[in-house]
């Protein structure tokens, strides 16, 4: 077993878990809170990665994060605009934006499908220079990712309890009531999707700097992976305040990365990652249902036994 669980696996699972947790949090807002299946995630993630990479190449790795978030807001706004003002079904709006973003992303990357950041400063290379300490050198990447996620969690934990945050949550929970409480549901959907888009893009920008590259296909399948993390997180943390719920999603994301790392460790080829993801998602989603069925079957058997004893 010791060959399967090494410290470096744990470490990289946590790093990736934190970075990708931002998409899972984004889906928590759009999918769980707003009850909208926003499928623009894949394109939006690559958009954040591309914008972040270009700004990083220009020499501004920190500004890159904010620019990427700005781009994500635009993407979220267009998705929201299509469904609130143009009468496009929410699931279609996401697909349309996702498709369109492919070209936009290529354009951002100067019509090349791959760019690398090996020779420019990134958030991580800048942080690396701070200290020569061995422990610091081992853990600074996780530190940065964790700090950003922590900040996002705290801000969201605060925001989702403000008047606007409550309105966004209520919009997905009971649209009927929202209209009767003088809240403009269209505006709340727009705000929610903009936040969600900005977090997805932020995740992309951080991943680009972390891997020192950006590829037009980075985003493919991210929505499935994020959904898996989200569902694992929701299974882990079933109740509690907003901060606790959002933290649960981060936990789910780390756990998911850990499962994938172990799966790959079992000599699965790297190409199998997507299939493994799909299986994990299906398993995570069906788990509560299977558990209930198993419980029912058990109860049925017991009652039959009792009846048999009586007769």
């Amino acid at each position: 077993m010791s060959t399967i669980f090494t410290l470096s696996i744990l470490q990289s699972a946590l790093e990736l878990g934190c970075i990708y947790a931002l998409i899972a949090i984004a889906l928590y807002i759009s999918f769980t809170l707003l009850n909208i299946a926003d499928l623009s995630t894949d394109g939006c993630f690559t958009l954040g990665c591309a914008v972040g990479a270009m700004v990083t190449m220009a020499g501004h790795p920190v500004l890159a994060l904010f620019m990427a978030m700005g781009a994500g807001v635009c993407s979220g706004f267009i998705t929201a605009f299509l469904q609130t003002k143009m009468g496009v079904q929410s699931i279609l709006a996401g697909i349309i934006v996702n498709t369109g973003l492919y070209t936009v992303n290529l354009a951002v990357m100067g019509f090349s499908s791959n760019i690398n950041l090996f020779h420019c400063d990134t958030l991580f290379s800048l942080a690396k220079q701070v200290s020569e300490n061995k422990i610091y050198r081992d853990w600074y990447e996780l530190g940065i990712a964790a700090l950003i996620v922590l900040a996002v969690c705290l801000i969201l934990g605060w925001f989702l309890n403000t008047s606007s945050g409550l309105s966004i949550r209520a919009t997905g929970d009971n649209a009927h009531m929202v209209k009767a409480s003088s809240i403009n549901p269209g505006r709340m959907i727009t705000a929610g999707l903009c936040i969600s888009g900005s977090l997805t893009a932020l995740s992309g920008a951080i991943l680009g700097q972390y891997q020192k590259s950006c590829d037009i296909n980075f985003g493919t399948g991210q929505v499935t992976i994020a959904l898996a993390s989200l569902i694992i997180g929701n299974t882990l943390v079933r109740r509690g305040g907003m901060l606790k719920r959002v933290s649960g999603v981060v936990l789910g994301s780390c756990l998911y990365r850990f499962i994938v790392a172990i799966a790959l460790r079992l000599n699965l080829p790297a190409e199998a990652v997507k299939l493994v993801s799909a299986v994990i998602v299906a398993a995570a989603i069906s788990f509560p249902c299977l558990k209930e069925k198993a419980g029912f079957t058990k109860k049925k058997m017991e009652m039959r036994k009792k009846a048999a004893v009586r007769t």
Binding site: S163, L166, R169, A170, D173, H176, M177
Partner: peptide, 16 residues
Amino acid sequence: LLGTAPHMTIEENMAL
């Protein structure tokens, strides 16, 4: 069921 948000707490519904 139409007048309240089921997944939010009593306090949050009132606050809204």
